[in-house]
Simulated scan of single mutants.
Amino acid sequence: MRRVYDSEALRRDDEDPFSPVEDDESTSRNHVNWTNVSHALVPQFLRSRAIAVDVETDKDRYESGEEIHFGVTFYNRFPLPVTIVTETPKPWEWSVDGNVEGSELPADHPEERSLFRFDRSERKRFRRTWSGRVRVDEREWRTADRGEHTLSVSIDAVHGTENLRAETTFRIE
């Protein structure tokens, strides 16, 4: 009796359509680009409703000058891939009390659109840290005021921005 590896039963032959495929990256006649299919079939306003946004800090209270660590999660609730068209090349941004990345200076983004892609049911997680200081000038930073502050996260989508936003509050003592 011959062994399997002696019979070359596991060898792939490009001429034989019934032999197993060893390389997933090879092109296939039956390959479907599901991202393109969902982009064509799912309207933009519905795509923005597919993505859930969440933000949370590691604590509720911080000392003045202490770094604030926070996590951001984006989750595709649809069982198919979703692509969001964004207003800027940066797919998402965070702000404290309306100041983008803790800066009172206006954000300087190129006027280009970008794509934020999600596989089906994909969850994207990011960790960020804010220094607890607010940028007021090119070279000047000041410690954030004591009291309650709001941390917001959003995707600046071309359509459906109202659904692509989350916020949380924390207190500086």
Rank of each mutant, 00 (worst) to 15 (best):
E67C: 14
D13S: 11
E162P: 05
P20T: 03
L151W: 00
D60C: 06
E93W: 06
I84S: 00
V158K: 07
H31S: 07
E167V: 06
N33H: 06
R146V: 10
P81F: 00
N163D: 15
V42D: 00
S64C: 09
D119K: 12
T143L: 10
S103A: 04
D97M: 02
R49I: 07
H149S: 05
R171I: 06
D16F: 09
N33R: 05
V158P: 05
N33S: 09
P89N: 08
L10N: 12
L115I: 14
T35Q: 13
S114V: 05
L164V: 01
E167I: 02
T73R: 09
S131H: 02
R2K: 15
D119A: 14
H39Q: 15
F45Q: 13
S103W: 01
T27I: 15
P81C: 06
E67A: 14
W141S: 04
T83K: 02
L105P: 03
E66G: 03
T168H: 01
R113I: 09
E63P: 03
Q44L: 15
M1H: 09
S64H: 09
S121D: 15
F45E: 13
S19V: 02
A107Y: 08
R165E: 13
M1I: 08
V153T: 05
T83I: 03
E140M: 13
P110Q: 10
D119Q: 10
G147D: 04
E56W: 15
A107N: 10
N36Q: 13
D58S: 15
S154K: 06
D97F: 02
D58I: 11
H31A: 12
W94I: 04
E25S: 14
E140Y: 11
P91F: 05
D156L: 06
V136H: 07
G98E: 03
R139W: 10
E148Q: 14
F118V: 05
P89C: 08
G65F: 00
N163W: 15
R2Y: 15
G160T: 03
S103Y: 01
S48K: 01
W94G: 02
R123P: 04
R165N: 15
P81D: 02
E15H: 14
D16P: 05
A50P: 00
E56D: 15
R77W: 04
D108W: 08
E15A: 14
D137T: 13
P20D: 05
S64R: 12
R135E: 02
P17K: 09
G65C: 00
D156V: 07
T143K: 10
D119E: 13
R125P: 06
H159R: 12
R120Y: 14
T169L: 03
